[in-house]
Write a protein that binds this DNA or RNA. Sequence first.
DNA 1: ATAATTAGTTTACAGCCACAACATATTATC
DNA 2: GATAATATGTTGTGGCTGTAAACTAATTAT
Lengths: 411, 411
Amino acid sequence: MSPKFTADQAFIRETNLSLVLRLIHSQAPVSRAQLAITTGLNKSTVSSLVDELLERNLVHEVGNNAGGAGRPATMLEVNAQAGNVIGVELGVDFVSVAVTDFLGNILWRKREEANPNEDQEKMINQTLRIVKEAMTVGKKKNQRFLGLGLATPGTVNIEEGVLIFAPNLHWRNVQFGKIFAEQTKLRIFVENDANAAAVAEHLFGTARQVQDFLFVFSGVGIGGGLFLNGKLYRGKNGYAGEIGHFPIMAEPSQTVCHCGNRGCWETYANQYSIIQRVQARLEVKRTSIIPKLMAEQNSGLTIPLIKQAADAGDKEAIDSFAEAGLAMGQGFAGLINIFNPKKMILGGPLSIAGEYLLPNIIEAVKRHSMPEIGQQAEIVLSTFGPDASLIGAVAIVVDDALSRFIQVDKK
Amino acid sequence: MSPKFTADQAFIRETNLSLVLRLIHSQAPVSRAQLAITTGLNKSTVSSLVDELLERNLVHEVGNNAGGAGRPATMLEVNAQAGNVIGVELGVDFVSVAVTDFLGNILWRKREEANPNEDQEKMINQTLRIVKEAMTVGKKKNQRFLGLGLATPGTVNIEEGVLIFAPNLHWRNVQFGKIFAEQTKLRIFVENDANAAAVAEHLFGTARQVQDFLFVFSGVGIGGGLFLNGKLYRGKNGYAGEIGHFPIMAEPSQTVCHCGNRGCWETYANQYSIIQRVQARLEVKRTSIIPKLMAEQNSGLTIPLIKQAADAGDKEAIDSFAEAGLAMGQGFAGLINIFNPKKMILGGPLSIAGEYLLPNIIEAVKRHSMPEIGQQAEIVLSTFGPDASLIGAVAIVVDDALSRFIQVDKK
DNA sequence: ATAATTAGTTTACAGCCACAACATATTATC
DNA sequence: GATAATATGTTGTGGCTGTAAACTAATTAT
């Protein structure tokens, strides 16, 4: 049925602990007195809460702040050493693993090419191998791990830690939670890549304190992390966020999307659409350095290569990005009209070309959104660029630690 | 900054009172014992909460339920006599007012034609006159009023009770809250019409217990009430829900939307698009009863008239609805992909033709949505048809009474 | 008649936060 | 340099909360 929500004293304590911890996280350094004012809680209550957080090593005092008159305040900060976190990002053709401290600072990272089509078990074992390597890093630093987060394309059952279906990987029903828990003995958190990236921006990035924003993950397709009313929105089954499949034109002539339909927005605005635009231009106009770059680097026509050409001032590259930017912006406008968000964050592989896309996205939003709504939305690039989902994997672990006060096993 | 959320004892009590009251509302008749099981609260706590609700006259006992073995349960129900509510719907060309009991049962209602373009003050005075008439009804029944809800098109600042901007009415910054509070001495709640309708469905209609659904309000334009994670989503400024302005086609050839853009989804799926479809058909094909109906009734080409023709089996009318249904369904599919909702509810003036639209909406959703997501969404007609916003105006008052336990002035 | 079962109440209790008084540590002022 | 002013943070009391367990109450099963 509907999720029951009862409250008791333990709930009060947990809510207030979490509130204070999150405020210390987002507004560090702060004093107990400042916390009392911003929360509305009594000074003594704040002291009691902070004492508990200090005891749990989640925060620490960082000297005094002698400002004006009066007793100087003892400033508080979240303790970066509260514990380490492992983040894993599963991509369509790579695996990334990172070890960070509690504040998301990267202590170690590794990326390997991978091929999910070849053999699922092989890729999982590859991932496990890198994870175990990562764990030795944490051990050396004598730190406990708070957990392991895994970001993957596709839809995820976060309670069970199961990847339900990832069209890009052609995977179904993968028990990540179970497999990784057995192999690492850590607490495992599995989340969709765009959702994870959204949490990363909320916790560590450009969307701190922002209650309503969309993370637009653009790459092979376009997915979205919907952060609404101060939390992730997942929909009935966790499928929410398939923003790339709004049918913006259902004529039979349109490109077939990999979802099987025609005229999905993402077919006009994903990375392949840019490659197509460049190809079309190269066929008519040859004054571009792109063919030369491809020959030199023995590379196909890829986004990084087109970006490189644009950096060198190549008009065909720049114009292709501009055109794609307008198409992306059209979808952004529609989403802004629907959501009235404070921010729209562009991330994913395509965001490496953000500087060329963004001005036209903004232009298209201005043109196609309702003025009252469009003016309210800031359109920005992801803080973490192509690493957004990897940091996101870390963020979902940290976010849990900021919320829950379940005893973490000591080492 | 971000809304702080602190918890204290009063909050616990209010949360649990509200939880129990809502459960009694949605699952009546229900016993204390059942409530204890479903909430997870202790039996004694439930008794204490129920005692308080009884004292406040919000619920009442309705006999025993002698089922199997054991002491028979005392069943509880929300007290319809807890207080009356006034609902007001401001339409583009009418005003509706209703008096209901606490369960939303209509005790009295009145609808008058109105013209917002003529004179704002005149229309407000007209509304106030009907409201005062309504209040004499409640007085006769010796009932107190819990409040007055007002549903209006446009964007609303719900804290202040101000209509910010309603393009269809050409109104800006109307202080409904202030005006109505002064004139009626009641607590006033102002809300956007689509949002109000969504609350009505959640509280009294087809979306009871549904956490994630969209109310699609189709009429002159297409607006949406977004009910996500168990509550209304309003966005940063309360503008959220402009689902009609997703640019599904940006070619210069398209119809200009009243938002100023071209190719908005709603221009393919609003009531005017249906009228256009019928007109186009009538120009080529004359075997339709529509011209005859228009002549007989001395009426223009309206949706009710086309509906009447469809009821009589007129192929042109039926086919026009079918075509529009497919266009609506295309947008529904896009929204379903984005939101992964449990339900999509079609309401608003166009919903009187729901039986002709719905099959094609469902067909288009099947065709254009991602199968995993589309299969999850039930697509249904509003329980209240064209009255959804009027009942919604009532619902926002009831919803508040179910949540808050501020002392209501006695009579 | 007695036991079993289920509903609801009473009483003792521990946890939580608010409040007010207090201790602490600095700057401002004379 | 002493005193006042100011701001930070702590301590102890009290009221409110839900929990737990023992209790009463009202029915059916045997």
